[in-house]
Design a protein around this nucleic acid. Structure first.
Length: 491
RNA sequence: GAGCCGCUAGCUCAGUAGGUAGAGCACCUGACUUUUAAUCAGGUGGUCGUUGGUUCGAUCCCAACGCGGCUCACCA
């Protein structure tokens, strides 16, 4: 027998009493016809509300109560917000008022009433009838401070959403952002698709996958780390403008900007280059910011961000020179660059290749300083096994990453569509894997076969949706923009 | 995985230089028919994260463990 808190017991007793009296505490025969937003839209601007105004039928959760014995004000919260209800004994009648007095904060009720303004001018409903729709057993957190304990906010997101309007707002915005992106993609003739989350060969990114097992097939499967290779198969198949907004899973550390499952949009556009995607990305993100915030200027964690175009562009090497303490000439020399890496405290293996070394230094000296939107280009070929080599310099690829507020937000490149080159790159990855690099790519023969049918010249991009939401809602942690972030088991 | 910090009433927080704990909100009782964190009077509520150790005595000191936060590592 579980121990029940006194406050819960009180409420359970009320429910038992209702059952005994033949009143269902969980009825399902009430249909609200209005929301708090409807009330506000109708009379929010009206000072003189006509006496014969039509009544409103509403439902919601009781969030506050100010009682006067024979009358009371309550705050009702529905999906659109809050509204005030005024319940008076001689209007609703003895019987109804007696039941009303037994209602608790957190209970869900349905009510009907006419609109009016109180002495202090607050738009309210003068209730003619009110009844319980769902009894709540758990006491709500405090009305003034709300719920601040982060662990409880993440574990019991439902409570967080009930009592913290700011949290609610973040997830409303998240939904709106995704809708804006989806509409923008569709308007630009991209086809939305879904590709496997469970893959036999986890490809499309350098990351450690989660492993699972299919019993009937007696086969190990991986949760996908990226949809990339499947989306490009679709480009081969003729769906040459596709996008997918969905989850990726990576078996890596959890941090303020990493959750094991996270949402990405990946899209592929045939007959385009990574430079076309620079323009497109600017257009897309400016559209989202403008529609969501009504502005291209906003603040993120104390930093003023502007989306005014054009956005800055720097090559990896330019960024290292700009933000690090090393000149361009030394940067080109592997040994001097390695010495610099040591000087700034990077403990890297002696055998590290130039390309990897360069990226390590870039991440250390430049990444967190890229506050305004910046496209970083000219990535080393060896760290980009799926990207097209630059025509003038095979050491680099036609790729960019977009950084905003010190975080990587997007990654894009002209796709490698030469099956011979792709096979060689996979083989190089397999060699790394055999040397113990757990994150190196697997060989994917079917993907090579697909390329052999011919993939049109294509550019593709992935945009981290969670990080975009963090940026646009000024949220410090990825857990603040994921409804149910991954946590350890409770207790 | 490592380091630092935190864990006290349903919620938000005090506190004890070691002597078994307090406030506000919520809840209960009473008053109150236009309040806005309503007000007024009275009251209930805690194995102080868990388990050990030191001590006459531990919520407090020590250790281990659990959960969370931040930083680092890995990464997007």
């Amino acid at each position: 027998m579980e121990e029940l808190h006194e406050l819960t017991l009180q409420r359970r007793r009320k429910v038992n009493k209702m059952w005994e009296e033949g009143i269902n505490p969980y009825p399902n025969d009430f249909t609200p016809r209005h929301t708090s937003a409807d009330l506000l839209a109708a009379y929010g601007e009206t000072t003189e509300i006509p006496e014969n105004a039509e009544s409103f039928v509403v439902a919601g959760r009781i969030m506050a109560r100010r009682s006067f014995g024979k009358a009371a004000f309550i705050q009702l919260q529905d999906r659109k917000g809050r509204m005030q209800l005024y319940v008076k004994k001689d209007v609703v009648g003895e019987e109804c008022f007696a039941l009303f007095e037994s209602f608790d904060l957190g209970d869900i009720v349905g009510a009907e009433g006419w609109p009016f303004r109180t002495k202090t001018g607050e738009l309210s409903l003068h209730v003619t009838a009110i009844r319980l729709l769902t009894k709540s057993f758990q006491p709500l957190p405090e009305k003034f401070h709300g719920l601040t304990d982060v662990e409880t906010r993440y574990r019991q997101r439902y409570v967080d959403l009930i009592v913290n309007p700011e949290s609610r707002d973040v997830f409303l915005k998240r939904s709106r952002i995704i809708t804006l992106i989806r509409d923008f993609m569709v308007k630009n003739d991209f086809l939305e698709v879904e590709t496997p989350m469970m893959q036999q060969i986890p490809g499309g990114a350098t990351a450690r996958p989660f492993t699972t097992h299919h019993n009937a097939l007696d086969m190990d499967l991986y949760l996908r780390i990226a949809p990339e290779l499947y989306l490009k198969r679709l480009v081969v198949g003729g769906f040459d403008r596709v996008f997918e907004i969905n989850r990726n899973f990576r078996n890596e550390g959890i941090s303020i900007r990493h959750n094991p499952e996270f949402t990405m949009m990946e899209f592929y556009r045939a007959y385009a280059t990574y430079e076309d995607l620079i323009t497109y990305t600017e257009e897309l993100l400016c559209h989202v910011a403008q529609e969501l915030l009504g502005s291209l200027e906003f603040t993120c964690q104390g930093e003023a961000i502007t989306f005014q175009r054009p956005w800055k562009r720097l090559t990896v090497k330019e960024a290292v020179v700009a933000y690090g303490d090393i000149d361009r000439k030394s940067l080109e020399d592997r040994d001097l660059l390695y010495a610099y890496a040591q000087k700034i405290g990077l403990g890297l293996p002696e055998s590290i290749s130039y390309g990897r070394l360069l990226m390590e230094v870039f991440e250390e000296v430049a990444e967190t300083k890229l506050i305004q939107p910046t496209f970083i280009t000219a990535y080393p070929t060896e760290v980009s096994p799926l990207s097209r080599k630059n025509d003038n310099d095979p050491e680099i690829v036609d790729r960019f990453e977009l950084y905003i507020a010190g975080r990587e937000l997007a990654n894009a490149f002209s796709e490698l569509n030469d099956p011979v080159d792709q096979k060689e790159r996979f083989l190089a990855q397999v060699a790394l894997k055999n040397k113990g690099d757990e994150e190196a790519h697997y060989m994917d023969e079917d993907y090579i076969r697909a390329l052999e049918y011919g993939m049109p010249p294509t550019a593709g991009e992935g945009i981290g949706i969670d990080r975009l939401v963090m940026l646009l809602t000024d949220s410090p942690s990825i857990r603040d923009v994921i409804l149910f972030p991954q946590l350890r088991k409770e207790k």
